[in-house]
């Protein structure tokens, strides 16, 4: 991301892949990319990319660029290097490259340094799931499911509807929809124009406080800025290991494989320990989900109980997070 104009290229910087179809004057036809909580490639596939390429070529023929008020002009230039905390981040790094997620990490750290950081700010670029719908990975403007009781269901959105526009912004892909959602307030309202049985139908979604949050943000690299982590890495036990240790399926069973946090060592946790309960949480989870729990729910300096299995015995330790972030 070195030298990239952030005023023009706005996207989910926690991502690992994003694309834009543009003309030579910095104007955008459509955005392709984005993910949900399930996978980095949940909405990246050959069919949808080819369809988006064909749409971009057709739009280019008639120069039908996105013109909504939500589009960046690119007239001003702001680069990642201008984020005040970026210089310190790069100074520590042998390879001085700026990754996509560095942009978000540096931005959140800057807010933290100004005492303006709020935990919910990590939830950038909401997706269709935040509205209560899923879109087809192949045809990303087509609604595949509508979850009952969600803003989309309450507004009358139906399975099979096609999203034509969101806030007067053309939607061809999940990337297009996400761009609009990023600009939508919390709480807020969202106008959609849907196509149903050949007819255009306007609907308005009421989005209540916290609508931008998702259920499993553990994939977000920038999470570590907003709260403390457990300072360890590990892996889920497989079925055989669980059976041998008499640990139930569906329950937390993470073997510690690496420790980097001084607070982790101070708590008495060792490589080889098996974590079976963390801060009262005993449901099965990945190591990323385990680390995400305190990042989303605990404050620096908090203490949590952790139940371990070590050499066939169960013991409880208490982990006190650092009083301040390490960086």
């Amino acid at each position: 991301m070195n030298g990239i104009n952030l005023e023009l290229f706005q996207f989910e910087f926690d991502l690992t892949w994003m694309s834009f179809f543009m003309d030579a004057e910095n104007r955008i036809y459509t955005r392709y990319g984005g993910r949900d909580d399930s996978s980095p490639e949940s909405h990246l596939n050959r069919n949808s990319l080819l369809a988006t390429m064909r749409s971009a070529l057709a739009l280019h023929k008639v120069q039908d660029v996105l013109k909504s008020r939500l589009e960046p002009t690119g007239r001003t230039v702001r680069t990642p290097e201008q984020i005040p905390t970026m210089r310190a981040m790069l100074a520590k790094r042998k390879n001085k490259c700026i990754h996509c997620h560095d942009v978000k990490v540096a931005s959140l750290r800057h807010l933290r340094n100004q005492d303006k950081l709020q935990r919910h700010m990590v939830f950038t670029y909401p997706t269709a799931a935040n509205l209560g719908i899923t879109v087809s990975p192949d045809r990303q403007s087509v609604i595949r499911t509508v979850k009952p009781g969600t803003p989309a269901a309450r507004a009358g959105v139906r399975r099979g509807d096609t999203i034509l526009r969101a806030e007067d912004h053309r939607v061809l892909t999940l990337g297009d929809l996400s761009h609009v959602l990023e600009k939508t307030a919390d709480p807020g309202r969202l106008s959609l124009e849907l196509k149903r049985n050949g007819r255009a139908i306007p609907v308005r979604l009421d989005l209540s406080t916290g609508w931008r949050k998702s259920t499993d943000p553990s994939w977000r690299e920038s999470l570590h800025v907003v709260g403390p982590n457990c300072g360890l890495w590990g892996r889920r036990l497989n079925a055989n290991e669980r059976r041998r240790l008499k640990l139930a399926p569906g329950k937390l069973a993470l073997k510690v494989t690496f420790i980097w946090g001084p607070h982790t060592r101070k708590a008495g946790i060792r490589v080889g320990d098996i974590i079976v309960r963390l801060d009262g949480q005993a449901q099965d989870m990945t190591i990323k989900q385990l680390n995400a729990h305190p990042m989303l729910n605990k404050a620096w300096g908090d203490t949590i109980p952790i139940v371990l299995r070590r050499k066939g015995r169960e013991l409880t330790v208490r982990m006190t997070f650092p009083r301040r972030p390490a960086d």
């Binding site: 694309s19 834009f20 003309d23 030579a24 997620h101």
Partner: peptide, 20 residues
């Protein structure tokens, strides 16, 4: 890329990818 797009009249496919 912009210069080339202007010269050829083609649209651009701009990709950001991170390896991590």
């Amino acid at each position: 890329g912009r210069k080339l797009a202007r010269r050829t009249g083609k649209p651009m496919f701009v990709v950001f990818r991170c390896e991590r």
